[in-house]
Simulated assay, not measured.
Amino acid sequence: MAAFDTTRPAYGAAPVAGQFNGLFSKLVAQVAAWNHARVTRNALNALTDRELEDIGLVRGDIDDVANSH
């Protein structure tokens, strides 16, 4: 009697799935980083010039702060 093991994925199928998962996770990370920068930028723009000065910033620094990691 012959037995076949059919529980293994086809040759080359796993790397394709891994590449898709890697691409998807990179996309999610980029969207999350963009949203974090957007929220930071909006919060800093809501501050007055005096409040920005208290934390050592000027309006021109907001984009640099929001885009830094």
Score class of each variant (00 low, 15 high):
residue 45 N to F: 06
residue 56 G to H: 04
residue 22 G to I: 05
residue 43 A to R: 15
residue 49 D to A: 13
residue 11 Y to M: 11
residue 68 S to M: 12
residue 54 D to F: 07
residue 57 L to I: 07
residue 55 I to Y: 01
residue 66 A to M: 05
residue 44 L to Q: 07
residue 1 M to T: 06
residue 9 P to M: 07
residue 57 L to V: 10
residue 2 A to S: 13
residue 27 L to S: 15
residue 26 K to H: 11
residue 10 A to F: 00
residue 39 V to C: 06
residue 40 T to P: 00
residue 6 T to H: 09
residue 65 V to N: 08
residue 63 D to N: 13
residue 22 G to P: 01
residue 11 Y to C: 06
residue 55 I to C: 05
residue 1 M to R: 10
residue 60 G to R: 12
residue 18 G to D: 14
residue 51 E to P: 00
residue 61 D to S: 04
residue 37 A to I: 00
residue 25 S to G: 04
residue 23 L to V: 13
residue 12 G to H: 00
residue 45 N to Q: 13
residue 36 H to L: 10
residue 45 N to P: 01
residue 26 K to F: 09
residue 8 R to E: 05
residue 26 K to L: 15
residue 26 K to C: 11
residue 65 V to M: 06
residue 34 W to P: 01
residue 22 G to W: 03
residue 14 A to M: 14
residue 53 E to I: 01
residue 17 A to C: 00
residue 36 H to G: 01
residue 27 L to F: 09
residue 62 I to V: 08
residue 60 G to Q: 11
residue 15 P to W: 07
residue 62 I to A: 04
residue 65 V to Y: 12
residue 13 A to E: 07
residue 26 K to G: 15
residue 65 V to W: 05
residue 45 N to H: 12
residue 30 Q to W: 13
residue 8 R to K: 13
residue 47 L to Q: 05
residue 53 E to N: 09
residue 31 V to T: 15
residue 52 L to M: 07
residue 8 R to P: 00
residue 2 A to V: 09
residue 47 L to S: 03
residue 41 R to K: 14
residue 16 V to M: 03
residue 24 F to H: 10
residue 6 T to E: 02
residue 65 V to D: 01
residue 56 G to W: 06
residue 69 H to M: 09
residue 63 D to H: 10
residue 13 A to H: 07
residue 50 R to K: 15
residue 44 L to V: 10
residue 7 T to G: 02
residue 6 T to G: 02
residue 21 N to I: 14
residue 44 L to A: 04
residue 24 F to P: 01
residue 25 S to R: 08
residue 37 A to E: 01
residue 37 A to T: 02
residue 3 A to F: 08
residue 54 D to S: 13
residue 59 R to E: 07
residue 68 S to T: 14
residue 13 A to P: 02
residue 25 S to M: 13
residue 10 A to C: 05
residue 42 N to W: 00
residue 39 V to L: 10
residue 18 G to Y: 06
residue 28 V to M: 07
residue 48 T to V: 05
residue 8 R to W: 04
residue 52 L to H: 00
residue 41 R to Y: 09
residue 27 L to R: 13
residue 52 L to G: 01
residue 38 R to K: 11
residue 34 W to Q: 10
residue 43 A to I: 11
residue 55 I to F: 04
residue 62 I to Y: 06
residue 21 N to G: 12
residue 51 E to K: 03
residue 52 L to V: 07
residue 30 Q to T: 03
residue 68 S to I: 00
residue 1 M to N: 03
residue 63 D to K: 10
residue 63 D to Q: 13
residue 13 A to K: 11
residue 33 A to R: 10
residue 17 A to M: 09
residue 64 D to Y: 10
residue 24 F to Q: 12
residue 28 V to R: 12
residue 64 D to Q: 10
residue 52 L to A: 05
residue 56 G to R: 08
residue 24 F to I: 13
residue 49 D to F: 02
residue 48 T to A: 13
residue 19 Q to R: 15
residue 10 A to N: 08
residue 67 N to V: 01
residue 22 G to Q: 08
residue 27 L to P: 01
residue 57 L to R: 00
residue 34 W to H: 05
residue 48 T to C: 11
residue 53 E to V: 03
residue 25 S to Y: 06
residue 33 A to T: 12
residue 54 D to A: 13
residue 30 Q to E: 14
residue 8 R to T: 02
residue 44 L to W: 08
residue 49 D to C: 04
residue 37 A to W: 02
residue 7 T to A: 06
residue 15 P to G: 07
residue 43 A to S: 14
residue 61 D to N: 13
residue 3 A to I: 15
residue 1 M to H: 12
residue 46 A to C: 05
residue 14 A to I: 14
residue 12 G to D: 06
residue 58 V to Y: 07
residue 22 G to L: 08
residue 47 L to I: 11
